[in-house]
Design a protein around this nucleic acid. Sequence first.
RNA 1: GUGAUCGUAGCUCAUCGGGUAGAGCACCGGAUUGUGGCUCCGGAGGUGGUGGGUUCGAGACCCAUCGGUCACCCCA
Length: 424
Amino acid sequence: MKTLQAIRGMPDTLPVDTGSWQWLERKVQDLVQSYGYQEIRMPILESTHLFARSIGEVTDIVEKEMYTFADRNGDSLTLRPEGTAGCVRAAVQHNLISTPQRLWYRGPMFRHERPQKGRLRQFQQIGLEAFGVATPDADAELIALSARLWRDLGVADAVQLQLNSIGSLEARAAYKAALVDYLSAFKGELDEDSQRRLETNPLRILDSKHARTQEFLTNAPNLHDFLDEESVNDFARLKAYLDGAKVAYTVNPRLVRGLDYYNKTVFEWVTTELGAQGTICAGGRYDGLVAQLGGKPTPGVGFAMGLERILLLLGAQGIEAPSTLPLAFGVGVGEAGERACFAGIEALRSSLPQFDIRLNTGAGSFKAQMKRADKSGAKVALIWGETEAQNNTVTLKFLRDDEPQITLANSLLAQELERISNTM
RNA sequence: GUGAUCGUAGCUCAUCGGGUAGAGCACCGGAUUGUGGCUCCGGAGGUGGUGGGUUCGAGACCCAUCGGUCACCCCA
């Protein structure tokens, strides 16, 4: 029989790695809750229309990266490629945003792209969305929160904040026209992708990696000259908030985002440590999206971070989740010893529930059991043999310290282990 | 979607067209019949990703396919 395999780009997370995941998720969860964000859980499947309407019909995500298929009744469904659209849908559907609301979510997102470093077809994001606040303090708080996360994780020195304002929809439309007008003169000399984008998504030409295309952009119209007054003011206020909180940033006038719903603030946290996929966290303001999806006009701002990329960065920086080793490992020799061991370990789990205490299962020779005790990393082996079983005692052998082993009554074991744990 | 590169034991890798495909680590057992780590000895573990082709003979060469990796496009 052919070996069954996971779907391409949708890897299993194995026990050797889940500790890091749990550590990271816990850190993020604690932080966002301390800022008043409440968790919301959305389905991973939504109506295809939701994404097409919010992300934009001509974006790469919608045009070629979505997992879309027909439900049994013919409805077109899509595995969510990002979280904001579903979050807005849920918030509108359940009337969560009649007052300002801070929401966060986590879970898998799906995009049908060729896998590479830092890019998978199923990947995990944690996203935050703040609804109902039009002023840039909301943007600033989100950015400050993310900056704090990098500090908490110990990667602050490896990431940089790129910041920009892309203005109102109207300002952007005017700029888009001017840019197309300017670049059309060189159309034949632009790279192929940029020529195509001239028709579909001209703003994305700005961050083209082609040197020659970038040359033509040197004298191109500047987005900031087209910004509406409100966007200019809000951007200045945002920068003042960040300056006051000592959050460093680089204004990048070429920073645009791939999703259509953004306006005013856009930002990305980037690193040079991860190769080609250096964005670990990105977001911006989307004041028109709620209304666009049928809700009452409500401003919004949010971001999402890619957990795999953050874990890669932590790895590159040599930062590891603190690992915990078991306190004790129970070894039972002979039938009476095994029974005494099982009972003794279960009793310990009742009296010392805060500790990691392991039990040898599957018998094995004394020697084999001691090997397992050592391999478990436990501080102490708890040995029940024939003699111990007969006398209601247990022998403690210290596996990490140069201390003689001791034998004591079962009834004193929990107390003794607790004492030992304090000296760890 | 495009390109490059790689698939041999659980893991890291040898073998580079010629006899039953090897090593280290890990695993199991023994030396030490109630004591782990160090050492020594032994054992188990493979349809060489899969399917075709070339050849007297293929793990090795060719093609296809699946998968990994990295990059492009794009994005978290």
